[in-house]
Design a protein around this nucleic acid. Structure first.
Length: 581
RNA sequence: GCCUUCUUAGUUAAAUGGAUAUAACAGAUCCCUCCUAAGGAUUAGUUGCAGGUUCGAUUCCUGCAGAGGGCGCCA
């Protein structure tokens, strides 16, 4: 019905004296016709008169009165009135108001989907955790968020590709390899373990698995590796890595491949348990080496040099970021000839651009926010409009258990992993909790609250509503063999207890739309909470199964629609609705 | 110092520039002879400060005060 109102508003605007087409377009762009927040105001409301008034220099109330009389003349609505400072409130004819029940039940899965994405392609890059250890609870938030916006954008008509960028080329992989290497030869190395190596128990697991599948070479002389290592922890590990590569090259690369793949496999397994899927895994190593002038990384830097955006100074190659508001220029290639992490990232983003996406979304940890300007600078330099890149920052999550903050130390290997979280509270409760707060805000993840069965925990509150409806529908079907065919009592207005529910479900498509344009999945959660509340309230006031058969038929059809909306909403968050609790 | 995010009820959180700022928890009081009380109903209480833009500001702009995060030729 809202499109019909908008059509009439359009006609009204055109009919006004002294209005240019541009003005009409501008007004239509700024105004909105929406479902009201309260049935007392009718079913739909528009602020068009107040927008138009300020542009046309007329009184909003006068305009509202004119529009009201036009809308009344059309006989399309039950009631039309102006209200407050110049709102137009429309009450639909009852048959139109309740038609949404039928509409939803005919195609339950489609309700809430939209086409405003126009099949444009969006790439979402998220998680992209370094493959040096298992995912922890911080990664879980990015995973839940990226996956949810992927689902929401897909349902809004975008073509979405989800990608994971694997940092498999940097120094941290060498450290991982060295850590495993030392474990493999722990007998020869005696008590020695580098200060800066990874210490988690998974390192030991990888070493054990390696021994099962390969024959580790025997070290002839461990002292060649560890004699006179620098005492500085950074230099110690770097020197050790150099020696390992020299002394035992073939074994080094075997261990490296094995360790990387082991960690990657565990990451993939955790993500799959978490109901998060990726379409594409991009390896940093596929960008190639600077030594190869035809590699992606060389070509990217060459392009920047050609455009005079990259230059040499003090022996290093720098990117000029002055145009983007970054506070200083950034090194691409060090004075010793090795590329920085940033250089890889520039090449990676050039590759994304070359793949021709209409829009790129990067979901990054909040600690990367200083990084946005330099990457925008590089993209602008490569001729990609930086407005087509959208960086969504996800804040860290603090974990609380029994009211106390759980300490996490990656260095010692003592941390609460995503897998632990899934095992403790389940995938759905965890995803829900992550998504229940705006992603760029700090989140206190309270394990006890996430599993509590009180109203404070929205997850169970919403699921309980779904389960209650499911149970009612089952009982109805047991008594009646099949679902009712029509909702006469509701249509003819003899039963009006469901009106609030009908009104609430008619809001759903606009909620999804807002969630998709703002990339805010939590809006769906808060909507579902409201809907669940409306339902629980109805359920308490009205003993459904003892109603007359005619009323019962209507109620069942209405509740079936409510159930579809809850289930569709949860689906967008990647959460399975519960059928019983 | 520079960049950035944030400040809403006693607490934790919501709110495309809209009407009376919305919930939950904690507090007070009610509701199971009944479809799942993991629920419902009633009650009290809120936009850090000072300006500006606007018909209208929690929302946009400026300044101030306070809190967090980021500022490597690390990844």
């Amino acid at each position: 019905m809202i499109p019909i109102i908008n059509e009439q508003i359009n006609d009204f605007l055109i009919s006004l004296p002294n209005v240019s087409d541009d003005q009409v377009e501008f007004i239509k762009e700024k105004c909105a016709t929406t479902v009201t927040d309260d049935l007392k105001k009718g079913h739909a409301t528009s602020n068009v008169c107040m927008i138009a008034a300020s542009i046309l220099k007329r009184s909003p109330r006068d305009l509202a009165e004119e529009l009201v009389s036009n809308l009344k003349d059309s006989n399309a609505f039950e009631k039309v009135e102006s209200a407050g400072p110049g709102f137009i409130n429309v009450t639909f004819k009852r048959e139109d108001f309740v038609s949404i029940i039928n509409y939803i039940n005919l195609n339950p899965k489609d309700f809430g989907t939209a086409k405003h994405g126009k099949n444009k392609s969006i790439q979402i890059e998220f998680v992209s955790a370094n493959p040096t250890g298992p995912l922890h609870v911080g990664h879980g938030r990015g995973a839940a968020y990226g996956d949810a916006i992927g689902r929401i954008l897909t349902s809004s008509g975008y073509k979405v590709e989800k990608e994971y960028y694997i940092n498999d080329a940097g120094r941290q992989i060498d450290i991982l390899t060295a850590s495993v290497y030392v474990k493999l030869n722990s007998d020869a190395f005696m008590e020695f373990f580098p200060k800066n190596a990874y210490k988690g128990s998974y390192i030991e697991d990888i070493a054990q698995a390696f021994k099962q599948k390969n024959t580790p070479s025997t070290l002839k002389d461990a002292s060649l590796y560890i004699k006179d290592l620098p005492s500085d922890e950074e230099k110690e590990i770097d020197e050790l890595i150099v020696r390992m590569k020299e002394l035992d090259s073939s074994q080094w690369f075997e261990v490296k491949d094995f360790a990387l793949n082991s960690v990657l496999d565990s990451i993939k397994e955790d993500l799959s348990l978490f109901n998060v899927g990726f379409d594409h895994w991009f390896y940093e190593s596929s960008l190639g080496n600077l030594a190869d002038s035809g590699s992606k990384i060389s070509l990217a830097i060459q392009t920047l040099k050609d455009k005079k955006l990259a230059f040499e100074e003090n022996g290093a190659i720098w990117l000029d970021t002055s145009d983007s508001g970054d506070d200083k220029n950034r090194v691409l290639i060090r004075d010793d000839g090795r590329p920085t992490y940033f250089a890889s990232d520039v090449a990676y983003h050039k590759n994304k651009i070359d793949r021709g996406f209409d829009k790129l979304i990067n979901v990054w940890g909040a600690d990367h926010h200083g990084y946005i300007k330099r990457i925008e600078a590089s993209m602008n330099g490569l001729g990609f409009d930086k407005n087509r890149l959208d960086v969504q920052l996800v804040q860290f999550a603090n974990l609380f258990k029994e009211g106390k903050k759980v300490k996490m130390s990656t260095r010692s290997g003592d941390f609460y992993s995503l897998k632990d979280l899934i095992q403790d509270i389940g995938t759905d409760a965890a995803r829900f909790y992550y998504l229940s707060k705006q992603a760029d805000q700090h989140l206190d993840f309270d394990l006890d609250l996430a599993t509590s069965d009180s109203k404070e925990n929205m997850f169970y509150y919403i699921q309980y509503a779904h389960a209650r409806i499911f149970s009612l529908l089952n009982k109805y079907k047991a008594n009646n063999n099949h679902m009712p065919s029509s909702a006469d009592s509701i249509s003819n207005g003899s039963y009006r207890q469901c009106d609030k529910l009908i009104h609430e479900i008619s809001r759903y498509p606009s909620v999804v739309r807002r969630a998709s344009t703002s990339l805010h999945p939590h809006l769906i959660i808060f909507y579902l909470k409201d809907l669940a509340h409306t339902f629980h309230s109805f359920y308490n006031d009205n003993p459904v199964l003892t109603e007359s058969q005619e009323n019962l038929n209507s109620i069942i059809l209405c509740l079936d629609a409510v159930k579809s909306v809850i289930s569709n909403g949860l689906e967008l968050l990647g959460i399975e609705p519960m059928e019983k609790m």
